[in-house]
Design a protein around this nucleic acid. Structure first.
Lengths: 212, 212
DNA sequence: ACCAATATACCTAGTAGTAGGTATTTCAAG
DNA sequence: CTTGAAATACCTACTACTAGGTATATTGGT
């Protein structure tokens, strides 16, 4: 039976490219395309069910992570393959946690994409080789030496600092003492070896996923 | 005569897609592909000259802007078409300043890409409609109402703040008084309506192009 | 039940950033 | 040549952050 693919990516040219690549495959059909997560969900709800969903991670309106959470809940039997850029390691982990069954980086070629599609349709998983550290993190392999483990609270506070909140504002927001926030910030400083608030913002924006 | 295209993009899948899309066009041939700016330059130096160069803006090792500067110097007759993501407005301006003759966003479709290729080969320019403000900025149209004009010095200092430098460090680095840096920072605050250093880092990382 | 990690809270002293000023020099545009 | 923007420099008072502590309650895992 033919593999019916639903694909979501905000770059039309990329979708067109994939369609063109897969058009030579007689056993693969792209039956649905979407420019963001919301369109994807709507399309699947209103159309014939695809065999597999292929989605970009970062998209406007609704990203791939949110869409994946929603879709795995409603359609647990349809595997989701994440498409990712080389620099979105952290996002990949979130996608897998959201329920994606595999990922392929956009550095991959046609062969790898096809392989991933077939693996997922067969109920297996597939992971591009190029993001080993992050997959390791998710699969709880041996932790990286330079892997930084911030606690939930610390991440929360770091995110607020990155948003420009002052210590007092954070204290009010979380209904905690100013001293507590101070302590947490100091612990973050130690763990990250960053000594200034501006440095933290830098780190947070580059390493956490606070973007849009 | 056939249009001979050299293409550079760090996403192999994207290149494959473009190749596949263009393979149905009898008058277009992709004769060269590269994963970054450096590979592109080397390929062009060692191979037959292309009719047109199509390149992504952000790439590892050497980005499209640097490559374009180099290539327009050595090969002023070969037009360069920039491929860009929706959120890289500022980069587009730099590409045009570097000598690119047009740009197409990755939201475009096959038709638009072909149109752009033909326009550039014919010696014309082509700009996707979707980034009007930035092109306006470059072409010095009427300035945007909410366009923020920081002076050269202010941008320089903002960049250093974003890199985590303190006022004193910046003062030493630029051989200026601490008071001067303070004044500049205060002026930046006023212009951007941002009242804190962390807010500035946020703004700088999102709006300036400090990334690699 | 116990241990380690997490989360909480407080104190002091010092440094850096914020907010309000004023003022001089330079340089390009009108 | 004058005007205005840009760049420079200084002052004071106040607020926020940094760095060094100590200490207790809670929680998850063996």
């Amino acid at each position: 039976m033919k593999i019916k693919v639903a694909i979501a990516d905000d770059h039309k040219l990329f979708i067109d490219g994939i369609k063109s690549i897969l058009s030579t495959e007689i056993d693969v059909d792209i039956i649905m395309e979407a420019g963001n997560g919301l369109e994807l969900i709507k399309a699947i709800e209103n159309g014939p069910l695809p065999t597999i969903i292929v989605t970009d991670i970062r998209m406007p309106v609704m990203d791939g992570i949110a869409a994946t959470k929603e879709l795995t809940k409603k359609y647990p039997d349809i595997p989701i393959l994440a498409l990712t850029m080389y620099d979105q390691g952290a996002d990949v982990v979130e996608m897998l946690e959201a329920g994606a069954k595999g990922y392929v980086t956009k550095e991959a070629d046609k062969q790898e994409l096809l392989l991933a599609l077939k693996r997922l349709v067969a109920g297996e998983k597939y992971f591009s080789k190029t993001i080993p550290e992050d997959f390791c993190k998710w699969a709880s392999c041996a932790p990286e030496e330079n892997e930084i483990i911030l606690t939930r609270r610390e991440k929360e506070i770091l995110a607020l600092i990155a948003k420009g909140r002052t210590t007092l504002q954070i204290a009010h927001e979380l209904k905690l003492s100013k001293f507590t926030i101070d302590t947490h910030r100091k612990n973050i400083h130690k763990k990250l070896k960053i000594k200034s608030n501006t440095g933290l913002v830098n780190y947070a924006l580059k390493n956490l996923n606070l973007n849009y």
